[in-house]
Amino acid sequence: MSGTARSEHLLRFSCRGLAILLLAFALYGCAATGPLPPRPATPQPAEMTEPAETTEPAGTTEPAEPVTAPAARPEGPAASLYLQADSALRSGDPRRAEMLIERALRIDPGQAIYWHTLGRAKYDQGAYAQAVQLFLKAESRMNAGDPLARSNRQFLEAARSRAQ
């Protein structure tokens, strides 16, 4: 065992063995240390409804249509606008969806799902280059493990290939 490893081992041992526990808690809690910068909180993903509802891919042209994200049940002041935009998208009115979701974004721009929906509205209007950018923006607002991530990535790739 090297010197470094040994010292680490000893410290680990002393830590566990002592069960020093309560004292350690107290010390840890009271320790005056340098200020920790606020860890940037990543936006919370919109809660998804179960079971997941998907729309049928519209035609099987190349590249394949990405799978539409399950209907979301978002929270926040602009949630009603999101639901209207989602409904407009599903009923084939992406222009209306775009206006609604832009309004939602002005109110609550931290929601990845809103950026994704704006990307979808652009995608459905054939504005693939801008859709790519909006899916990237949505991705930048997502937390690891966001349930929207997969669908967003699929749309991103589909838009990318159509934009070329």
Partner: peptide, 14 residues
Amino acid sequence: AIHQGVRAVEQTTR
């Protein structure tokens, strides 16, 4: 090495 060790303590106690 010392810092790594202390970090280990920190992680364990956390």
